[in-house]
Design a binder for these strands. Structure first.
Lengths: 329, 329
DNA sequence: TTGTATGCGTTATCAG
DNA sequence: CTGATAACGCATACAA
């Protein structure tokens, strides 16, 4: 047959085992097959080093066992963490991950969705703040942190609860004048609820607070100006800061120290995300920790669920406080 | 035809455009087609929202345009960086990335290679120190940092040169007594040449030095004991440390500070990798920076090259020194 | 229970 | 330059 060098196919196995093609397929798929036949097929598979061709299977079944994960990048440690846990959750369910980087590029995201459809992925998990994204109808679609519509399930941390918790904690640790700092998309999304929870707690506790929010393009120096404007005689007006992300918190802390302020002695700082040094060492800052593993597993379970229709359209998962040395606890 | 809900196929497009199936294929693949026909096909594609099915194409052409990348995890920032640049390099070449985590598990790695073959990937890029890994013959295979055999191209940073550079830099910054600290696989691999380069430079400069190398399972406390044993009257025997990775360097620095030593005033420290805070801010420690982007692009170019046979079996890419505040420069 | 035969969507070969 | 048709490897409905 001259098919020596090519990888063996089911037909080859069938010939080798002296059975029919269909029987091989049944053995490979773990269906009921007579002992004798099964043994012969398995021996032939072993002998030939056969492994099934997933293109053929995909074409026939119209299922690729592959999920696309769209994320801005993998350099941001929080995104890297998500990739990690989503991949693990997918493997647990016998699925593969096709990884797409959006680079925060809106037109690219649209193109990537098209590519994912070409690849006939069984579902898409996306983290995108793209306001003009149209979600395809014909493929299960789940988003992280961004609510699109009731028909597109959104998985997120309890951002409101996190903001609330942060304010509570700062108060508990003795802070009397708080501020919330953030930079990000102007789009209303789940993370923007961090502020709302923070405000709710401050109001509830009767604590004075201020909000300083930058839009995506604005320079970091705006924060420096803001803080400098609140520095009087070497003392800052605030003794507790809640910052939108750990990444920003880190930069803010550097700025504070450059201004001669001590953290946490003079100002306590809580970030958001739960980033750890080198991924597994101590937290970078005191923080509200996202339940990344639960988020990942929920995404996977949701995107793979048979009936996307009767799945909740917004799932918020509980956060927790994690001390990282930038608070007095 | 009752194929309403299903995604359209080339046959549908052909019918819609009133041309033959083959003509549609030619248009989709950008082959020579008459103006009139081409226009009609493109219109039909637009009208139907057709996009090609890559399973069908893969089955037919035996090429998936997919490369598997095997890496321990994505939590380690260096690995995350690699994932990022390899994905970008693949996209530039029109390929997709299938991401597999090994978790440093040897048997898992073997299983993953099998899975990659099932998925008929066009190639595999792997970062693995598995000593018992057998590389498949029938799929292009490229490794990072680990040389298997002359027939398996290995891409790595110039680890020897990096070690050499580190010792040179420490000397240049005034160090007179150096030490090299490392933990890792006992297997001889590219990163283990960091020590060799370091030693070569020390010998060349006539500087005294010591080596402290732990194997993978050993506890970090061994380093603490080592350092404590070299502390006399509040002074450390060494004024310059070269540490195998930034991650370890970070932990070592914490230990030094706990011992009452100042970095870089009393001891200067250089790590290896080039990890930055949150992926894009300042370096975590002074370090020998890996050329991650070049490594990634070289991996991709190599694994996609037509004739793997006449590709060099070991490619070392130049490193550079990067100051991160733990040296006096 | 096992064998046979068809078609999934595509590309490539061959006639026209 | 275009149309028809045969594989690619597999799962599955149907026949034995």
């Amino acid at each position: 047959m001259a098919r020596e060098h090519s990888t063996p196919t089911m037909a080859d196995v069938a010939r080798e085992a002296g059975v029919a093609l269909g029987t091989v397929s049944r053995v490979v798929n773990g269906e009921q097959v007579g002992e004798e036949f099964k043994a012969r097929v398995e021996a032939a598979i072993e002998r030939l080093g056969y492994h099934y061709n997933s293109s053929g299977r995909a074409l026939r079944t119209d299922r690729t066992n592959t999920i696309a994960f769209m994320i801005p990048n993998t350099i941001n440690p929080y995104f890297a963490l998500l990739v990690h846990h989503i991949n693990l959750a997918l493997e647990k369910r016998g699925r593969r991950m096709l990884l797409y980087f959006t680079g925060y590029d809106h037109s690219r995201e649209i193109e990537l969705i098209r590519m994912a459809q070409q690849n006939r992925v069984d579902g898409i998990i996306a983290l995108s703040y793209n306001p003009s994204l149209t979600i395809p109808e014909d493929v299960p679609f789940v988003t992280i942190d961004r609510f699109f519509s009731a028909s597109v399930p959104c998985i997120a941390a309890d951002n409101f609860g996190g903001g609330y918790l942060a304010a509570r904690k700062l108060s508990e640790f003795g802070c009397r004048h708080l501020a919330f700092l953030r930079i990000g998309s102007t789009l209303t999304n789940e993370p923007s609820k961090r502020k709302d929870g923070f405000v709710a707690a401050c109001v509830e506790m009767g604590l004075p607070f201020e909000i300083m929010a930058l839009e995506d393009g604005q320079p970091f120096s705006e924060f420096e100006n803001f803080l400098a404007g609140h520095l009087h005689g070497g003392r800052l007006d605030f003794d507790g800061l809640f910052v939108g992300t750990d990444s920003l918190a880190w930069r803010i802390i550097r700025t504070l120290r450059k201004m001669g302020l001590r953290v946490p002695e003079d100002v306590q700082v809580i970030g958001f995300d739960g980033i750890r040094m080198f991924g597994d060492l101590e937290p970078v800052v005191s923080t509200i920790q996202q339940p990344v593993q639960e988020i990942a597993e929920t995404c996977v379970n949701t995107v793979l669920s048979k009936h996307l229709a009767n799945v909740p359209s917004l799932i918020c998962l509980p956060v927790s406080y994690l001390s990282g040395g930038t608070t007095r606890a």
